[in-house]
Design a binder for these strands. Structure first.
Length: 874
DNA sequence: TCAGCTAGGCTTTTT
DNA sequence: GCCTAGCTGA
C-alpha cells in the first residue's frame, strides 16, 4: 500500500510551520521502487518529465484546468453531475503530489459531515494515508470548534466548552424570556432562537443588529435578550452553532497575530458548495484567506476599526473588502505579491438554502472579492441523459439571477427516455401509481431489465408528503428508507443519557442538569428546581454547585435534600472515575447507577424496549471514540447516523437532502402550485423565493441519471383539509421536446402561450384515456374559476376547499368519492387486540382499526399501519 | 405526579 | 388531520 504519500511528514500541531517545500519537489523522498499507488506513479512520471501524472488522466480540459490552476483564486462553477467532487479531490492530490504543501497546510471546508467524509475517502483513494494528515479537512463548524478549542480563553470560554444544539438553545432562551418577565406565549422562544440564528448567520453581535430587528421582538427587547443570551452562554461555558464561527471571527479580528499564524499555515484553501455560504462563513473564509506579504510583516492585517464593527451591511462589517486585504494585494510588488490560493467550488443554480441565510451573492461576486480570480465552468455532464439535461436546463433558464451555464452531454444513450409528467387524482393515487411504476421497474416489465430499488428515489418538497408513500410501500411490502427525518441523537432517551454524560464532563452544564435532575423521578419537583435556579442565578454559579451549597441549608425540604445529596454524590464519583475508567464502562455505570435504565425497564409502554435498545446502541457507538469528551464532541457536531446501505430499498427524502446524490430513476411527486413552488416561499421570498424553488426543481430533475417521473395531483389534503390544486407552473416551464405526458402521446394544445395563465396541464384532454371520470372533469371545472395574478398566487380566496368542513353540492360529491376510495365503509373483520400475521412484518397485535386500515404493533417491526387485506389472524 | 385534555402549528434543515 | 407542548384536575 505504499504509494509515496504515506511517508509525507505531517505538520505536527506543536511544531513550527515547516518551510514551504522546494518548488517541484515532493516533501517526501520518492519511493525507490514498488510504489504502485497512483500518486507514486504520478510522481515518478513527473520526474521523468512525462506529460501528465496518472491521476490527471481522464479529466476533461476544464476539470484539468481547475485542478492545475494552483496559484491565485479560482472559482469553479460546477454544474450538476460535472465531476465537482472529483475536481476537489484531485486538486488536493495534485497539491500534495507536486509538493506544494503538506497535508496539514491545506484547509478544505464542506457544509456537511457527509461531504467531508466522502471527500476524505476519495482523497484517500488517490493519495493513501496522507489524508490522515489533513487535520483541516472538515465542515465549517468542526474546523471552527477546532480553532476555538485552542483559543477559547480569548473569547471568554474555557476550552472544554459545551456545544448546545437547537433544543438546548430553545430551552435556554425560554428561561431568559421568562426571567425578563416577558410572556413566553406571546413571544415564543423558538421564534427568537430563529432570529438569533439569522443574526449570527449574518455575523452580527447584539450591538450590531438592525434597530428594526431589535424592536420587532418582545416590545423592543430583542437586543437585550440577545445580549442576555450571550451572557448566559458564557456563564454556562457553552456555545451555539453560530458561535462556532463567530467566536473565531471575533478572535481573529482582535488578535491579528493569531490570525497571521493561520494565514501562514493555510497555503491552500478549498471550499465546497460555495453557493451555500452565509455571511458569517464568508467573513470567516475571507479572514483565513488573507495573505500578508512575508517581506513586510508590519503591513499585515490590521485590527478592525471599531466603527466598522457596529455597522450593519455586509460591506461595512467587512472592511477589508476595500481595506487591508485588497490593499495588501495591490501594494505588494508584483513578483512577491502573496497569492491567495483559494478555490471555491459551487453552482449558483443549486443554491437552495437562502432561507437559512445562504447568500448566493457570495458566489456571484467572487471575482470582485478576489481580484484576478480565474473562473472555470464545468458544463460537461456525466450523469444524465440528454432529455433530462434538456428539461432541467430549460426550466432553470427561467431564472434571472444566475451566472448562466448550460449542461451538455455527448454520450449517446440507447434508451434515452423523456422526462414523463403524470397526473393523478389525489395524493393517495399518486402514491399508488408511483408504487406500481417502481414494482414494474423492479420486475423488469418496463425494459426487460430488473432494476434495483437502491437505484430509485422519491424526492418530495415537504416531509408530510412522505407519509403517503410510506403507507403505500408498507402495504405493498416494498422496502424503503427515509433519508433525513428524525435522527438518532434527537431521541428522548438518547438526549437524557447524553445529558448525564455532559454533566459529568462539564459540571457547569445547567441545561443538562435540569434535564436529568429529576429523571428518573427523584421527588425533585418544580419547587426545588426553582429554588436551585434562583440561588444559582443570584450567585452566578452552576446549578450543580448551587445544589452543593443548598443541601447545607434548610431552604430545601428534607426529602428533596436527601435526593439532591444522592445526585451530587453520584456525580462526584462519576467525575472521579472519568480519568480512570474506560468511557464505555463508565457510561454504562452512569446509566445503571442513576436508575435511568431501570426507569425504562419498569416502563410497561410499547416503546420502552426500543428505548433500551437505543441506549445500548449509544454505548456501542461510543467504542469508536477515545474518551467520553471525544464522543460528546462528535455527537454535538455530527448529528447524522449512517443508514444501513445493505438493504435494497427505495429512498424517500426531501429535495433538499437529495442535493449531491444521484439515482437511475427519480420520482418527483407533488408538483402543484402552493406545494411546489411552496406558497410560503412565494409569500415570504417573492421573486427570489420563486427562483429558489425553481432551483430546487432543477436539483430534483438533475438527480436523475436515466428516468425522471414528475407527478401532480388535483386534490391534496393539506392541514387536514382536502384542497383542489393546480399543476405547478414549473410543469409549463418544461420543454415539449424533452418531456412527454403519460398516457397520451398525442398533442396537448396550449403550449407556447405567453405569460402565466392557464396551464397546459389544466386541460383534461391529454389525460383523456385515464382521467375521463366525472370526478376528474369536476376537478378541472373547479380549477378553471380560480384566477391568479402574475405571481401565480391566487387572488381572492387563497385556496378553494372541498370536502371536510365545507358544504355545498360540489364538495359533497367529491368528498363522497374520496371517502369511497380511501376506506371501505364495511366493518372490519378484525377487532382490536387480535393477533395477526403480516408477510413482511411478522406477528403483531392490532392496536386500532379505522375502516380497512389497521394499526398494528408488530413484535419486531414496531407500529405500522397496514390494510386489512395484507394480514391474517393467527 | 401523571393521565388526559385542549390549543396551536404545520416548508425546506446543517451544524 | 395529526402531533406536541403545556395545563389541569384527580
Amino acid at each position: 500500500m505504499s504509494n509515496g504519500f504515506d511517508d509525507i511528514p505531517f505538520f505536527d500541531e506543536e511544531e513550527p510551520a515547516p518551510r514551504k517545500p522546494a518548488e517541484g519537489r515532493a516533501p517526501a523522498s520518492a519511493p525507490a521502487a514498488g510504489g504502485l499507488g497512483i500518486a507514486a506513479r504520478a510522481m515518478a512520471a513527473r520526474d521523468q518529465a512525462r506529460p501528465a501524472p496518472d491521476y490527471l488522466a481522464g479529466l476533461n480540459p476544464e476539470q484539468r484546468e481547475a485542478v492545475e490552476t494552483l496559484d491565485g483564486p479560482v472559482l469553479v462553477l460546477a454544474g450538476a453531475g460535472t465531476g465537482k467532487t472529483r475536481v476537489l479531490t484531485t486538486r488536493i492530490a495534485h497539491i500534495l503530489a507536486t509538493g506544494r504543501a503538506f497535508p496539514s497546510q491545506i484547509l478544505a471546508v464542506t457544509f456537511t459531515n457527509k461531504a467531508a467524509r466522502e471527500m476524505k475517502e476519495r482523497i484517500g483513494l488517490l493519495v493513501g494515508g496522507a489524508v490522515e494528515g489533513m487535520p483541516w479537512l472538515g465542515t465549517f463548524h468542526s474546523i471552527g470548534v477546532k480553532i476555538l478549542r485552542r483559543h477559547a480563553e480569548m473569547v471568554g470560554l474555557r476550552s472544554d466548552f459545551t456545544i448546545l444544539d437547537t433544543d438546548d438553545v430553545i430551552r435556554l432562551i425560554k428561561q431568559i424570556i421568562q426571567a425578563e418577565g416577558i410572556d413566553d406565549k406571546r413571544w415564543p422562544a423558538k421564534q427568537f432562537a430563529q432570529m438569533i440564528d439569522g443574526w449570527k448567520n449574518k455575523g452580527l453581535d447584539p450591538s450590531q443588529i438592525p434597530e428594526g430587528d431589535a424592536r420587532a421582538f418582545a416590545n423592543g427587547k430583542g437586543r437585550e435578550l440577545y445580549a442576555a443570551y450571550q451572557n448566559r452562554l458564557k456563564t454556562l461555558n457553552a456555545c451555539d452553532f453560530g458561535d462556532l464561527l463567530l467566536h473565531p471571527i471575533r478572535m481573529f479580528r482582535a488578535n491579528p497575530d493569531i490570525l497571521k499564524d493561520y494565514n501562514d499555515r493555510f497555503r491552500y484553501i478549498l471550499v465546497d458548495e460555495y453557493q451555500d455560504t452565509n455571511t458569517a462563513q464568508y467573513m470567516w473564509l475571507r479572514l483565513l484567506a488573507q495573505r500578508s506579504p512575508p517581506s513586510s510583516p508590519q503591513r499585515g492585517p490590521k485590527p478592525y476599526p471599531e466603527e466598522a464593527r457596529s455597522a450593519v451591511s455586509k460591506d461595512e462589517v467587512w472592511p477589508d473588502r476595500a481595506g487591508s486585504f485588497e490593499a495588501s494585494l495591490r501594494s505588494a510588488p508584483q513578483d512577491e505579491a502573496p497569492k491567495v490560493n483559494i478555490c471555491c467550488v459551487g453552482d449558483d443554480d443549486q443554491s437552495i438554502y437562502g432561507w437559512r441565510g445562504a447568500e448566493v451573492d457570495n458566489i456571484l461576486r467572487f471575482e470582485k472579492d478576489f481580484p484576478g480570480a480565474k473562473v472555470i465552468k464545468l458544463e460537461r455532464n456525466y450523469r444524465s441523459t440528454e432529455h433530462i439535461l434538456g428539461a432541467a436546463g430549460h426550466l432553470i433558464a427561467h431564472n434571472e439571477g444566475r451566472l448562466g451555464k448550460t449542461l451538455f452531454t455527448d454520450r449517446v444513450d440507447p434508451d434515452n427516455e423523456k422526462v414523463v409528467v403524470h397526473a393523478a387524482w389525489d395524493s393517495e393515487e399518486e402514491a399508488r401509481a408511483v408504487g406500481e411504476e417502481i414494482e414494474r421497474l423492479q420486475r423488469g416489465d418496463a425494459d426487460d431489465k430488473k432494476h434495483a430499488l437502491n437505484d430509485m428515489a422519491i424526492l418530495v418538497r415537504a416531509s408530510f408528503q412522505m407519509r403517503e408513500f410510506e403507507d403505500r410501500f408498507v402495504t405493498l411490502g416494498l422496502n424503503y428508507r427515509v433519508v433525513g427525518g428524525p435522527r438518532f441523537y434527537e431521541r428522548l432517551e438518547i438526549r437524557d443519557a447524553m445529558a448525564y454524560f455532559r454533566l459529568v464532563c462539564q459540571p457547569a452544564d445547567d441545561l443538562a442538569f435540569e434535564r436529568i435532575v429529576n429523571t428518573p423521578k427523584r421527588g425533585l419537583g418544580d419547587t426545588t428546581i426553582r429554588t436551585l435556579h434562583d440561588y444559582a442565578r443570584a450567585r452566578d454559579v452552576p446549578m450543580l454547585a448551587a445544589a452543593v451549597d443548598l443541601i447545607e441549608t434548610d431552604e430545601v425540604k428534607p426529602k428533596a435534600r436527601k435526593a439532591l445529596f444522592d445526585v451530587i454524590q453520584h456525580f462526584r464519583r462519576w467525575s472521579e472515575l472519568l480519568e480512570t475508567t474506560p468511557h464505555t464502562e463508565l457510561a454504562e455505570q452512569i446509566l445503571e447507577e442513576s436508575g435511568y435504565t431501570d426507569m425504562w425497564k419498569n416502563d410497561k409502554s410499547a416503546e420502552a424496549p426500543g428505548r433500551l435498545e437505543n441506549l445500548k446502541e449509544l454505548i456501542r457507538s461510543m467504542e469508536a471514540f477515545e474518551s467520553l469528551r471525544g464522543f460528546l464532541e462528535h455527537v454535538s457536531l455530527v448529528m447524522d447516523t449512517e443508514q444501513n446501505a445493505d438493504m435494497d430499498a427505495v429512498s424517500i427524502m426531501t429535495l433538499h437532502s437529495a442535493k449531491g446524490l444521484e439515482f437511475e430513476t427519480v420520482f418527483l411527486p407533488g408538483w402543484e402550485e402552493g406545494l411546489f413552488p411552496h406558497q410560503r416561499a412565494l409569500d415570504e421570498g417573492g421573486r427570489s423565493g420563486l427562483e429558489e424553488e425553481r432551483r430546487l426543481a432543477y436539483v430534483g430533475i438533475t438527480r436523475a441519471k436515466r428516468r425522471c417521473h414528475i407527478w401532480f395531483v388535483s386534490n391534496r389534503r393539506i392541514h387536514g383539509l382536502w384542497q383542489s390544486t393546480m399543476p405547478s407552473r414549473f410543469l409549463d416551464e418544461l420543454p415539449v421536446t424533452h418531456v412527454e405526458v403519460a398516457e397520451s402521446e398525442q398533442s396537448y394544445g396550449g403550449y407556447g402561450r405567453g405569460g402565466y395563465g392557464q396551464s397546459r396541464f389544466d386541460k383534461a384532454d391529454p389525460f383523456a384515456n385515464t382521467y375521463s371520470t366525472p370526478g376528474w372533469k369536476r376537478a378541472q371545472a373547479n380549477k378553471s374559476d380560480a384566477t391568479r395574478d402574475n405571481w401565480g398566487t391566487r387572488s381572492g380566496h387563497a385556496v378553494e376547499r372541498i370536502g371536510y368542513g365545507e358544504s355545498g353540492p360540489k364538495a359533497k360529491t367529491i368528498e363522497g368519492e374520496l371517502v369511497a376510495k380511501s376506506t371501505t365503509t364495511e366493518p372490519s373483520k378484525f377487532t382490536v387486540g387480535d393477533r395477526v400475521f403480516h408477510i413482511k412484518f411478522g406477528n403483531g397485535n392490532i392496536a386500532s382499526i379505522e375502516g380497512n386500515k389497521l394499526t398494528i404493533n408488530f413484535d419486531r417491526a414496531g407500529e405500522k399501519r397496514v390494510l386489512d387485506g395484507f394480514v391474517e389472524r393467527v
